[in-house]
């Protein structure tokens, strides 16, 4: 199948490994991935902060870039949620594409670590990803999945909320980190680099805490794929 990748601006600039992992998994399954190079940003941050006009321009830009593609994949729950509610594009979060469209639960990954999963708010309550990412993770060889307490609570990121209401965001983050530490996991996985940027920034200050990882990176890992950053 030919699949177009919307990598998202955040992954492009700060977390390319999430995009690379998405490409790696899909190519390993025998699919052709295209990367329309004119893509930039879906406009989510502008829209959510109240800047409707620039957001609309960015949304139209994505629509123009991806016009004619039958399947668009993105490793970001919140960007997919934004595009789904603001454009007519056939865009899938990676787990939706793998489970619903491609029917690939076992993607041939191996990851010998203890992992806990944080279901991000947009994945949970807008896209209703439900157990799709967990089913994919459960099929990964040598991976031990452990429950995250109070997993459905927001981590406190909220885009510009993290700056405008920094103290409240910090308090929510502290609780999320404490729950993550309590799992004793090596990694905290999620389907959204923006939440991971926030949670990971908090975990980095807590000794012995799990490391943040996009779950696509776990799905991309194989016995020979080398160390995960």
């Amino acid at each position: 199948m030919r699949i177009a990748l919307f990598v998202t601006c955040l992954n492009d600039a700060l977390f390319p490994q999430a995009g690379i992992a998405t490409v790696t998994v899909l190519e390993r399954l025998g699919h052709t991935v295209e990367f329309p190079a004119a893509q930039t940003c879906c406009g989510q941050m502008h829209a959510n902060t109240g800047y409707a006009a620039p957001a609309r321009e960015l949304e139209r830009g994505v629509e123009a870039v991806f016009a004619g593609h039958d399947a668009i994949v993105s490793p970001s729950g919140s960007c997919v949620a934004h595009l789904r509610t603001h454009t007519g594009l056939p865009v899938y979060e990676l787990s939706e594409l793998l489970v619903d469209v491609l029917g690939s639960i076992d993607v041939g990954a191996s990851f010998p670590h203890r992992v806990t999963y944080h279901p991000t708010c947009h994945g949970l309550r807008v896209l209703r990803l439900r157990d799709r990412p967990l089913r994919l993770l459960a099929a990964v060889r040598r991976l031990e999945l452990v429950d995250l307490p109070e997993s459905e609570q927001c981590c406190g990121f909220g885009g510009t909320f993290a700056l405008k209401n920094a103290k409240v965001s910090g308090a929510m983050l502290a609780d999320k980190c404490a729950n993550a530490v309590a799992t004793g996991a090596d990694y905290l996985a999620a389907a959204d680099s923006s939440c991971l940027m926030h949670i990971g920034g908090g975990l980095a200050r807590r000794p012995g805490a799990p490391r943040p990882i996009h779950y696509a990176e776990i799905l991309a890992a194989t016995p020979g794929s080398g160390p995960v950053p």
């Binding site: 492009d12 600039a13 700060l14 977390f15 990367f35 920094a166 920034g201 200050r205």
Partner: peptide, 19 residues
């Protein structure tokens, strides 16, 4: 306001599009 509560990431050594 960000670093008061959490570390900030730095731009990747190679962007996705360059990769």
């Amino acid at each position: 306001a960000w670093t008061a509560h959490r570390d900030a990431p730095l731009p990747a050594a190679e962007s996705f599009r360059d990769w």
